[in-house]
């Protein structure tokens, strides 16, 4: 699988209203907190249209989460890598990747997740 370049754009689908600020339309740290396996699931969207991104979410993520998508957090790979994290392709599904190399403590990961949320752009599903 090909390496993910720093300028590549990624998206994280958001299912919980607690993961974004509804009035300001900005992303909150919860959107980027790693799961028990110390991973955050994202999709590579540099060469994908906006409509296609939502289709990826509906087809690949909604069935697993069992919840409707509320929006997504778009972020550059370089904004993730600057915190010592790595983004590695993990297919299937197509274009899927994981953010890995998280820290050992929840507090350290919260500090990074706050920064990632600040760097991300929230896109609401209309």
């Amino acid at each position: 699988m090909d390496k993910i370049e720093p300028e590549e754009k990624l998206t994280r689908f958001i299912f919980d209203s607690s993961a974004y600020r509804q009035l300001a339309n900005t992303v909150k740290f919860q959107a980027f907190m790693p799961n028990k396996n110390c991973e955050v699931s994202v999709f590579r969207i540099s060469d994908v249209t906006d409509a296609e991104i939502w289709v990826i979410g509906e087809c690949e993520v909604v069935p697993k989460r069992g919840k409707p998508i509320k929006g997504r957090a778009d972020i550059l790979t370089s904004d993730i890598q600057k915190h010592g994290l790595s983004v590695v392709p993990k297919e299937p599904p197509p274009k899927h990747a994981n953010i890995i190399h998280w820290k050992d403590t929840k507090e350290a990961n919260q500090a990074i997740a706050i920064e990632l949320a600040a760097a991300a752009t929230f896109v609401k599903l209309e």
């Binding site: 300001a24 900005t26 992303v27 740290f29 706050i114």
Partner: peptide, 19 residues
């Protein structure tokens, strides 16, 4: 959180956040 712990969050914007 999934570990059962509670986090309180205060934020006024993306760069003013306290957990």
């Amino acid at each position: 959180d999934y570990d059962g712990e509670i986090t309180f969050e205060w934020s006024t914007d993306t760069r003013h956040v306290l957990l």
